[in-house]
């Protein structure tokens, strides 16, 4: 599997499991979970620096940007304007041109505002950013985002943090047949079998946060997710048997006692 690299906009990714850094107990736990997951991509948010409490530790003291690819996101933005502003600031911080574009449409579902996402993506692509958009599992939106130059699309599996797993595997398959860029399932998975399923469907990677950070033992769940992704990817590449209604014997019938 070492030659099975994911490449997006010329950037090589060693891991097909991408993880968020939110909701952990502390930075030490974040670091351990990230190490256990085997990932080389971590997402971070862009927030105001704490001017008053300067002694406070910074996430990047624990997550070395030389070791991990930092993927800033526009989490919490509800308009294209705010998302553009946040993404431009992220790029200016000087670590990466990658951005996970999120424009949230609704507080209750945290579903993306697809229209505003497309609008923001257009502007940010023109500004030279590498935009990876979080979007509904909608093949038409995926097609529109790819048409304006997005090098990957990140459809949701289920609402963010819900742990419901892959709600619509058929839409994900249609998205993969519709666009020829990497598909990264983003949000909604709950456990290792969910990520394995996403990978078995042929998705290129999975991004998750709450499923690890919210588990009783985040470090153990991070490791489980690592194997879930590896198992799912291997099974996809191996090519599963077709589903059939009736049995097919797996032992030879020749030479049976009494024949």
């Amino acid at each position: 599997m070492s030659d099975d690299k994911l490449i997006i906009a010329g950037i090589e990714f060693n891991s097909r499991l991408w993880v968020g850094t939110g909701k952990y107990k502390d930075f030490a736990e974040t670091k351990k979970a990230i190490e256990a997951s085997g990932t080389d991509v971590v997402t971070v948010s862009v927030r105001r620096v704490n001017i008053i409490d300067k002694g406070k530790e910074n996430l990047l003291d624990y997550i070395d940007p030389k070791k991990y690819k930092i993927l800033p996101n526009t989490a919490g933005c509800y308009t294209a304007k705010d998302a553009i502003r946040t993404a431009m600031l992220a790029a200016e911080a000087g670590i990466t041109k990658l951005v996970k574009l999120e424009v949230i449409g609704d507080e209750k579902t945290l579903f993306p505002d697809n229209e505003a996402t497309l609008e923001a993506a257009k502007v940010l692509m023109k500004e030279g950013l590498i935009v990876l958009p979080y979007v509904s599992d909608d093949p038409i939106m995926a097609k529109k985002l790819v048409a304006i130059g997005c090098p990957a699309v990140m459809p949701l599996a289920a609402p963010i943090g819900s742990g419901l797993g892959i709600r619509n595997p058929y839409n994900l398959r249609i998205i993969m047949e519709t666009v020829k860029v990497p598909i990264i399932v983003d949000a909604g998975v709950g456990t290792a079998s969910d990520v394995a399923l996403a990978m078995e469907l042929g998705c290129d990677a999975v991004l998750l946060n709450t499923a690890i950070a919210g588990a009783k033992d985040p470090i153990a769940m991070a490791e489980a997710m690592k194997y879930g992704v590896l198992a799912g990817r291997l099974a996809y590449k191996a090519g599963r048997i077709p589903k059939k209604l009736y049995a097919t014997a797996s032992s030879p019938l020749d030479g049976m006692v009494g024949t």
Partner: peptide, 11 residues
């Protein structure tokens, strides 16, 4: 003045 902070999906 902003920097990178912990965060995954929307919070």
């Amino acid at each position: 003045v902003v920097s990178f902070m912990a965060g995954g999906c929307a919070q």
